[in-house]
Nucleic acid binder design. Structure first.
Length: 262
DNA sequence: ATGTCGTGCTGCGCACGA
């Protein structure tokens, strides 16, 4: 059996609904982790997506942030919010267990803080959030399950993951501390799916709407699938689905889809 | 290069976040 697990920052589920529906019909991911749904759960366009055969769990808020998990298989043990700060009201983390045919697969939909401008309180929040993710991701490894932490990490891992490092070296997405915190997740025992099966430079998942970035090929790779050993062992391929970015009313992010023998 | 989107209201243009 194969299980495909996708991550896509849709930049508003309501504004993006036609694009999301077309993508679900075309790519047919088994599991889709969405970010920046930008809506409260009550206003999530549930029926339109359920009609395509998906179960839905959402953790949203008004205007900003918001994450969701869509799955063709049953969704269990849903956990919203990243542990470690009860004061944190931003909807950036949703975790659940997917009952795949071969057994349980844990997935999380992650919208990691942007952190700009850096330095400053927003960057402090980003680094603190990454520390909380580190602590939680470490605890998840103890389950020894296939686990996929999918999301918009707002981290450019390597110089070759952007078109021009000179434009990014002082940005919260590429600062050494950001990269170190991302690497720390890997040292825990998580495998970054794209790096594992492909690893080429300049395979971008985000192109800013501004300044004709898409037309110029000026993108960055910031959407990632982090796999526990039990998921990494089953990883067969990763696809960055560039065609979605060229569609009318596209999100500024591109879906990344991992295929697992699960 | 202050360029483009999406949201929501101090609302029919603006501020904010990205």
């Amino acid at each position: 059996m194969t299980l495909t697990v996708a991550s896509w920052n849709v930049n508003s589920i309501k504004a993006r609904l036609p694009n999301v529906i077309e993508w679900l019909e075309d790519a047919k991911p088994d599991v889709a982790c969405l970010q920046e749904i930008k809506t409260v759960d009550e206003a999530f366009p549930r029926e339109e997506i359920e009609r395509l055969g998906y179960n839905i769990e959402a953790h949203g808020q008004k205007t900003y942030n918001g994450v969701a998990i869509l799955s063709r298989h049953p969704i269990e043990d849903v956990q919203a919010r990243l542990p470690g700060d009860d004061e944190d009201e931003q909807a950036r983390y949703l975790e659940a267990v997917i009952s795949a045919e071969t057994g349980p697969v844990r997935v999380a939909s992650i919208y990691l803080p942007n952190g700009n401008p850096a330095p400053g309180p927003k960057y402090d929040y980003k680094l603190a959030w990454m520390e909380r993710l580190y602590a939680h991701a470490g605890r998840l490894l103890a389950y020894e399950e296939p686990t996929i932490l999918a999301g918009d990490y707002n981290c450019i891992p390597r110089d070759s993951d952007c078109w021009d490092m000179a434009e990014w070296e002082k940005d919260a997405l590429a600062l050494p501390q950001t990269r170190a915190a991302f690497r720390a997740l890997k040292w825990l025992g998580y495998t970054e799916a794209f790096e594992q099966v492909d690893g080429r430079g300049h395979q971008y998942t985000f192109y800013d709407y501004q300044a004709g970035r898409w037309q110029k090929g000026h993108g960055i790779r910031i959407d990632h699938l982090l796999c526990s050993p039990q998921a990494a062992d089953r990883l067969e391929g990763v696809d960055i689905q560039r065609a979605t970015r060229g569609k009318p009313k596209a999100s500024d992010h591109i879906p990344i889809v991992g295929t697992f023998a699960l």
